[in-house]
Design a binder for these strands. Structure first.
Lengths: 241, 241
DNA sequence: CGGCTCATTGATGTAGCTCAAGCCTGGTGG
DNA sequence: CCACCAGGCTTGAGCTACATCAATGAGCCG
């Protein structure tokens, strides 16, 4: 982990080019609120595999994701975890009401964060109702996504699960191409096979077999390790039903 | 469906004994806000199987649940649905930011609601920030519950799924007994076998077999149709891991 | 080059699905 | 009051998708 203290005067440098300023949580802050917030934040980069939020590890980061992918997980006593969601830039990461729940957050790649100290978030929410609205909105979006994923976990075959995963990632990495009715889409896969398995509730071998089936059927092609292209995204969408 | 217009002067009658007044969404309203709200609400009772919220049926009720059980569902084009959550009194039912998502709500029993007209909720949220906080809080709680259920859907066997369902219902219908470390708990089952199957992502026959296995193992006993007793709730909890 | 980790592939086992037959329970009508 | 029927639940017999166990291959780094 490396830290770079944010320079108070450097607001434009930090925030101007920041996605969170435009699409994320900061988009609704007044200039002076943003200036104040920027004096409180720390930019930090974490290696893959770092625990960012965990009840029993006592970590509870609140931050905007600037770069990278964070996986949200739930654990059982027996040891095997379930990935319950992924977060990408410029999502807000952290538990607004941190007394509730026991979801953990772990980096799935190198991740760069813009962190708020615990407590500053609450102050800002009290001060700027627009911020609270945005967090409320994100919570509702995440709730919908979670419920949508329950469909994938409960009602779909392994092949459909992998297809759903590819669509999710495609939509994240290249929204325009993914929304298009047709045409190939290049998709970087942000997770290892083991992590995909954890996300889909199946075993790693089954993930692998599903990938090769999709490849044999011409729906996807391998470009490089961790990079595939979806040949016909409409067909893939169709498969998921 | 039957309707009873709420009497403006009858605030005490309607709200005093209402769970929502104490534990639910109304608990944070001032007396005059509550009085105003009560002039806008309608008490209504719906038969089992009534669609309360559905994007494409054009229904979008906002209400407190006074009695009964509501199931939240997601549909696929292929026709088979997934129940993604249950709601009980005195939960708030409805989509605070109704532009997001496509979850449906259908009554699983006879249900009595205290309905707000669409729009009044937004007014009240703007007027009473405490109300917004409560809705925010409920959204986060539901998000955690959804993610917890993803564990059940993705990582557990049929028997464990049924056990998890019984624990969920027990905790809902008799929290004190369900929290207790030991002792039998009577649990009314609010769903048909078909609905339980839809909730757990398994087939109805498998639900049935799991029930009989649990019965044979002495973990549960049949009391009546739709009423079982959990003989040893700690053991059941243990099973789920 | 040897020793990693990660991914693929094959062979076999099994939980849960499918298909199909009873069986209660409650309602309806003679 | 009983006979009948319909819908929901249970049980059985076989099948299939995925898990498990095990071996091999491909990139990567010391």
């Amino acid at each position: 982990m490396t830290k770079e203290p944010s320079d108070i005067k450097a607001l434009p440098e930090i925030c101007k080019s920041c996605e969170a300023r435009h699409k994320g949580i900061c988009s609704n802050l007044s200039d002076q609120d943003l200036l104040f917030l920027s004096t409180q934040t720390t930019i930090a980069t974490y290696d893959k595999g770092t625990v960012l939020v965990s009840e029993d590890a006592g970590r509870d980061i609140h931050a905007n994701i600037l770069k990278g992918v964070v996986k949200l997980t739930k654990s059982q006593r027996n040891g095997d975890d379930q990935i319950v969601g992924l977060q990408f830039a410029p999502d807000f990461l952290g538990r607004p009401l941190s007394d509730i729940g026991s979801t953990n957050a772990v980096t799935a790649s190198e991740v760069r964060l813009c962190e708020f100290p615990k407590g500053v978030l609450d102050d800002m929410m009290a001060r700027s109702p627009g911020l609270k609205d945005l967090l409320f909105r994100q919570a509702i979006i995440e709730l919908e996504e979670a419920r949508e994923w329950m469909l994938t976990l409960g009602r779909r075959t392994a092949k459909q699960k992998v297809a759903a995963f590819l669509l999710l990632v495609a939509d994240q990495s290249d929204p325009e191409a993914a929304q298009a009715a047709t045409g190939p889409v290049d998709v970087p896969i942000p997770l290892s096979r083991a992590e995909v398995a954890e996300f889909l509730g199946i075993k790693i071998e089954t993930v692998s077999r599903s990938f090769t089936t999709l490849r044999e059927e011409g729906m996807i092609q391998d470009r490089a390790p961790r990079l595939i292209t979806i040949v016909d995204i409409a067909a893939l969408r169709d498969l998921v039903a």
